[in-house]
């Protein structure tokens, strides 16, 4: 379809960018999804919410394998942790009782800052894990939380720590595997999340997730991850080590703020410069740490 506008012709394309798609399959079970994936030999893709695939420019894809009928939409509390089925939408997760109870509603605090409600109605948690955009908030949070995932390929079932999986060529793994579940462990403490964006709806220029345990007035454990650096969220072991054993409060936050610019690994992309990221990382991290500490103590740290 084309319209004449002024002196030029504007072509209006209302189909998806994925031009090569020939077949759409509704997988009835995991085995069928896996055998279809294998039959396509890399030219087929698992379709969950479809938000990313619809925007993808992959010209090689010929088949889509819809996994929404596999019974993988659920959120279960287990031993203080959470088990989240891969096709659970971000909205269903946000609204579920187990997620609202996990870590005092921490996931709600994060997910309300992810995209906008109509996108959260479509996006799945598993899709966010497999896409793992470097700028995304969910990977940063999952690394800080120590999330594990279960997935299945033709060789069988596997389980792994996301943090380790993301260091491997994980996109290659998921060309022939279906992610089935994300497992969040229990933590005796509190987590907070913070991100910097141009507007509430924009994607992060830098994001971080911090978790702290406090015993006898001192930090007993710390988990800190920084993302959109512009790389995908990663933990900051030097900062976690520095925090443990210290008394949380303005003195410690000032020490952290001073060290961050020299220690933190950040870079430049088209959205922000490395210098800018270096300058704002300290205030962002300390704001997030202070919020986590306040949640644990209920006090004014």
């Amino acid at each position: 379809m084309s319209y004449r506008l002024g002196c030029g012709i504007v072509r209006v394309v209302i189909n998806m960018r994925l031009k090569g798609i020939r077949r759409f399959h509704y997988a009835r079970d995991l085995e069928e999804a896996l055998s279809l994936l294998s039959a396509y030999g890399g030219r087929g893709a698992v379709l969950a919410g479809g938000l990313d695939l619809a925007r993808s420019a992959r010209a090689d894809l010929e088949g889509l394998i819809d996994i929404s009928g596999l019974g993988l939409s659920y959120v279960r509390a287990e031993g203080g942790g959470l088990r989240i089925g891969a096709t659970t939408t971000l909205t269903d997760l946000l609204e579920s009782r187990p997620a609202r109870e996990y870590l005092g509603g921490f996931l709600g605090e994060v997910l309300r800052q992810v995209a906008a409600p109509p996108l959260r109605n479509q996006a799945t948690f598993g899709g966010a894990v497999v896409s793992a955009h470097p700028w995304a908030d969910i990977p940063t949070v999952l690394v800080a939380l120590g999330a594990e995932v279960s997935f299945q390929d033709e060789a069988g079932r596997h389980k792994g720590l996301l943090e380790e999986l993301w260091e491997k060529p994980f996109r290659h793994i998921f060309k022939g595997a279906v992610l089935t579940e994300v497992i969040l462990p229990p933590w005796d403490g509190a987590f907070a999340f913070a991100k910097l964006t141009r507007s509430a709806y924009d994607i992060a220029l830098l994001n971080c997730a911090c978790g702290l345990g406090i015993q006898d007035g001192r930090i007993s454990w710390a988990r800190v991850a920084l993302g959109a650096t512009p790389r995908r969220g990663r933990r900051l072991p030097w900062l976690e080590d520095l925090l443990v054993g210290k008394e949380p409060g303005p003195g410690l936050w000032a020490e952290v703020k001073e060290l961050v610019p020299e220690k933190v690994e950040v870079g430049t992309d088209r959205r922000a410069s490395g210098d800018w990221r270096r300058a704002v990382a300290g205030p962002l991290l300390t704001r997030c740490l202070a919020r986590a500490a306040r949640k644990v103590t209920g006090g004014n740290l």
Binding site: Y26, A54, S68, Q122
Partner: peptide, 18 residues
């Protein structure tokens, strides 16, 4: 934006067979 089973979604990012 349209409603899919009562929930708002973007019609441009949903595949018709979905």
């Amino acid at each position: 934006t349209v409603l899919l089973d009562g929930r708002a979604v973007r019609a441009c990012t949903v595949f018709a067979p979905q």
